[in-house]
């Protein structure tokens, strides 16, 4: 359960990050350049797809009904964390999913 939860959390954050970077203002905030239209669209589509994957991970962690509740909570909270990180540590905000992935592997190995 903890592994699926960690995966869900990381995926939810990654999805929100992609959606966020799909907005011109935030892309510029981090990369200091205007994103091409295809990249913005790709980030948005990708972001939603990753959020769907997060939903699947939540279902694995909690089962179908509770999974939906957990997904809403994770998406909201990871989005909030992203929002707080953006103005203070934009680079960290982008690289955080790597940390989440490592954490997930760590949980997988130790469980």
């Amino acid at each position: 359960m903890l592994a699926a939860f960690t995966a869900g959390m990381t995926l939810a954050y990654t999805g929100m990050l992609a959606l966020c970077l799909g907005l011109e203002r935030h892309y510029r905030q981090i990369w200091r350049e205007t994103p091409p239209v295809w990249l913005r669209r790709g980030l948005r589509v990708g972001g939603w797809m990753v959020l769907v994957m997060a939903f699947h991970a939540c279902n694995l962690a909690w089962g179908a009904a509770m999974g939906a509740v957990g997904w809403f909570g994770l998406v909201s909270l990871t989005g909030f964390v992203l929002l707080l990180l953006l103005p203070y540590a934009p680079r960290l905000a982008v690289w955080l999913p790597v940390g989440g992935g490592l954490l997930w592997i760590g949980v997988l190995v130790t469980m």
Binding site: L2, G73, L74
Partner: peptide, 13 residues
Amino acid sequence: FGGYPMRWLYFLC
């Protein structure tokens, strides 16, 4: 429901 992970989500939200 959902054990401690869910409890923490509720707490933080």
